[in-house]
Amino acid sequence: MVCVVGNRVRAAIIRGRQITGLASEVMAELVAEVGPLWHERHQAGLASRARRRAVGAGAKRKLVFVDRLLATLVHLRHGATHDVLACWFGVDRSTVTRAIGEVRPLLSERGCTIAPGVRLRSLAEVVDYLGASGQTGIIDGTEIRVRRPAAGSKDREKFISGKNGQNVVKSMVVTDAGGRLLFCSPAQPASCADITHARQLGLVKLLADGPVVEILADAGYQGLGAQTGGGVVTPPHRKFKKDAPDWYEEMHERRRKAHSSRRIRVEHGIAHLKKWRALARHHGRREHMTDTVQAIADLLSHQQTITLAADERM
């Protein structure tokens, strides 16, 4: 098997953003941060089981960590299959599958980057960050199509979305007022309503017990405003369902558009997420969706932080 990705190709991939979607600065930080974690887990795995040979003996790995990271990024960014990646790197398909399975969880554990060395890994940290900085947060749910469970499997219908009838999972996305990603929740079957998902994540308790924070949301979260003391702001209710006076229609439409114009930034953040083909439609195991969503959110937020810092220096 011929390896297509040589040293020159590898260097070109790292320098440019066409393939990975990440700047060279982000790639360098990923290698420096995730590489030692991967090596540590690899050595711990070798030492955790009974062996006839010493650790490090035997056949050597064909893929160095940089190639494992590149294979994972190309898979997430462009949805390249494991067979194609195996041809590129000159290894077996199982090697690529194992490499992605090792690197993807490491990426998902990093958390969303909001400043160099500062990351948010939970919804509680997001609420504290918004309260301390006095910023407004925006939440919305996004759906990702997945493979339908096999016939006869348990809870087969729970992945069907009431919105479009497709088999999907959903994740709650949190951005700031500028659309920068702050958090992506673990994936849930689509039969779970947006407001129920927010409650299960503990948003109501966090806003009740934590700092004063304003969270903008769409009509799918109506009801949270009363439970959070006005912390969650949703579109205004209609007082007249029919035969409304003209002045009320004009006022209601003006208020609705004002709320929508403030909340639209979360849609932009979700659109940036969906540019990664692994989230356009997921063909792999549904059990990997949480790691996939959070890994892409972490990578995208890191790139957004680097871009924002570069813009401020100019």
Rank of each mutant, 00 (worst) to 15 (best):
V2N: 07
I14R: 02
I14D: 02
G21L: 12
L22T: 04
A23M: 13
V31F: 08
G35P: 01
G35Y: 06
E40P: 02
A47E: 06
S48R: 10
S48K: 13
R49S: 06
R52G: 02
V55E: 14
V55C: 11
A59R: 07
V64G: 04
R68Q: 15
A71L: 01
L73E: 06
L73K: 01
H75K: 15
R77Y: 01
H78R: 08
H82V: 12
H82Q: 15
V84T: 14
F89D: 03
V96G: 02
I100P: 03
I100W: 06
P105Y: 06
P105I: 03
T113R: 14
G117V: 10
L123Y: 07
V127W: 05
S133Q: 06
Q135P: 04
I139Y: 06
V146M: 15
E157V: 09
N164L: 05
N164R: 03
Q166H: 11
K170P: 09
V173H: 11
G179W: 10
L181R: 10
C184T: 14
A190I: 05
D194Y: 06
T196Q: 01
R199I: 00
Q200W: 13
V204H: 01
K205L: 01
L207Q: 04
G223T: 00
G225S: 12
G231N: 10
G231L: 05
V233S: 09
P235R: 07
P236F: 02
F240Q: 12
K241P: 02
K242I: 02
P245I: 02
E250V: 12
H252C: 00
R256M: 12
K257W: 15
R262A: 15
R263H: 15
I264P: 01
R265A: 13
V266K: 10
K274W: 11
W276M: 07
A280D: 06
R281L: 10
H282M: 03
H282R: 09
H282N: 14
R285T: 15
E287S: 15
L299H: 02
L299V: 10
H302A: 15
A309W: 14
A310M: 15
D311Q: 15
M314I: 07
